[in-house]
C-alpha cells in the first residue's frame, strides 16, 4: 500500500513510527515542541508524547547536541533537529570530536545511536550564512553515517533506518522540497543505507546526484531525450557514507559516460570523490572525462537571479552531458 504524501509528512511519519515502537526515541531541538517546529516537521508531537520526549531546547547547538550524544551513550535514541544545518558549525566539535569518535577511542565500549536531522542546502534566498551543503564536510569523518534522501518514500524509510542505526547519522534533508509530494509506503519501509537508487534508466550517459539535485538531473534527462535523443540514466546516491560504489560502476560500465552534480562548491566536494571512484573502478569503460557540475565558488548570494546563477542549472547539466557525449552544447 502506498499513499501520496509530502516530504514533510513522510519525514514525520518515519519519526513517529519509531517513537511508537521504542520509548528510548526522543526528539530535541529549537522550537520543535510548543512552537511546532520551524518547518512544522514536529508540529503537535509534544501534545502526543509530552515534553520529556519532545524536548524544546535553548538556542545552544553545541550544548544540546553534546547532551544528546551523552543520552545516546546511555542507550537513548535522540533525534536532534538542527533548525538548519548551517547552525551545525556551532555543534561541530560535539559531532566530530565526540559523536564520531567516542566509540573508537573507548575501544568499542560505547555506541552512539544518534540522529541529527534538518534541512540542508539552499534555493530559497537565505543568502550566505544560511546556505550550505555539508555532505562532504560530514562525509569526511569516519564514525559518522551521512544520508541525503530526496523522495518522500526515502525520507521516511531512511529516517526509520537512521533511528535504528547504532551509529551517529547525519540526516540531510532537502529543505527546499518539504512540500513536494510522492508515493510513500505504509508502515515499516526501512531503506537500507549504502544503496544508491536508479531514479531513471538510460543507456547513453549517467547523471549522478543526491538531494534536490536528483530532481534537476531528472529534468535534464527529459530535456536530453527531447532535444538530443539521448537516454540519460540518473543515479540518486541517497547515502554518502556508506557509499554504494557498485551501482555507480555498473551504470558507467553500461553508459561509458558520467556527469556528477552537486549543489556544494566544486573543490573537495562529493562530485570529486565520485569522479575519483569512477576513474579507479571503471577507467576502461570511460569514453570521456567525468564531468562535474557544482555550485559557484562564492558565498551564497541573496538576489534571486544571483542565487540561481550560483547553483547548478538544468542547462549546466545538459551541457555537461553533451560534452561527455561529444555533441554540441546548447
Amino acid at each position: 500500500m502506498a499513499e501520496t504524501k509530502t516530504y514533510r509528512e513522510a519525514l514525520r511519519e518515519g519519526m513517529v513510527h519509531e517513537m511508537d515502537q521504542d520509548e528510548s526515541v526522543v526528539l530535541m531541538g529549537e522550537d520543535i515542541g510548543v512552537y511546532g517546529g520551524t518547518h512544522l516537521i514536529t508540529d503537535g508531537l509534544i501534545d502526543e508524547y509530552g515534553p520529556k520526549r519532545v524536548i524544546d531546547t535553548p538556542i545552544s547547538e553545541g550544548g544540546f547536541t553534546g547532551a544528546a550524544i551523552g543520552m545516546a551513550m546511555l542507550g537513548m535514541k535522540p533525534v536532534v533537529e538542527m533548525m538548519t544545518w548551517n547552525f551545525s558549525f556551532l555543534a561541530s566539535d560535539q559531532i566530530i570530536q565526540n559523536a564520531a569518535k567516542v566509540r573508537y577511542f573507548s575501544g568499542g565500549q560505547v555506541e552512539v545511536p544518534l540522529v541529527i536531522r534538518g534541512p540542508n542546502g539552499g534555493g530559497v534566498q537565505l543568502s550566505a550564512q544560511h546556505t550550505h551543503s555539508l555532505e562532504n564536510l560530514y562525509g569526511h569523518f569516519p564514525g559518522l553515517k551521512v544520508v541525503s534522501p530526496v523522495t518522500p518514500n526515502d525520507v521516511k524509510g531512511m529516517m526509520i533506518t537512521a533511528i535504528r542505526d547504532p551509529n551517529p547519522v547525519i540526516f540531510l534533508e532537502a529543505g527546499a522540497l518539504y512540500g513536494t509530494k510522492g508515493e510513500v509506503e505504509e508502515g515499516d519501509n526501512a531503506v537500507e543505507f549504502g544503496k544508491a537508487r536508479v531514479a531513471r534508466e538510460g543507456s547513453d550517459v549517467t547523471l549522478i546526484a543526491y538531494g534536490r539535485q536528483v530532481n534537476l538531473c531528472l529534468r535534464a534527462a527529459n530535456t536530453l531525450e527531447e532535444e538530443d535523443g539521448v537516454q540519460a540514466e540518473v543515479i540518486d546516491l541517497r547515502s554518502i557514507r556508506p557509499f554504494d560504489e557498485d551501482t555507480l560502476v555498473r551504470s558507467v560500465e553500461k553508459t561509458h559516460r558520467a556527469v556528477t552534480v552537486q549543489e556544494q562548491w566544486r573543490w573537495f566536494g562529493v562530485a570529486s570523490e565520485v569522479a575519483a571512484i569512477i576513474q579507479e573502478k571503471a577507467f576502461d569503460s570511460l569514453d570521456a572525462p567525468v564531468q562535474r557540475v557544482s555550485g559557484a565558488e562564492v558565498p551564497a548570494p541573496y538576489a534571486r537571479n544571483l542565487e540561481l546563477e550560483a547553483f547548478p542549472s538544468e542547462k549546466q547539466v545538459t551541457n555537461a552531458a553533451r560534452r561527455a557525449l561529444y555533441i554540441e552544447e546548447k
Binding site: G66, G70, L74
Partner: peptide, 14 residues
Amino acid sequence: IPLGVGFAYAMRYQ
C-alpha cells in the same frame, strides 16, 4: 561537559 549533562537526563528518563 554537555555529555555528562546528557547522561544525567538519560538516567532520570530511564
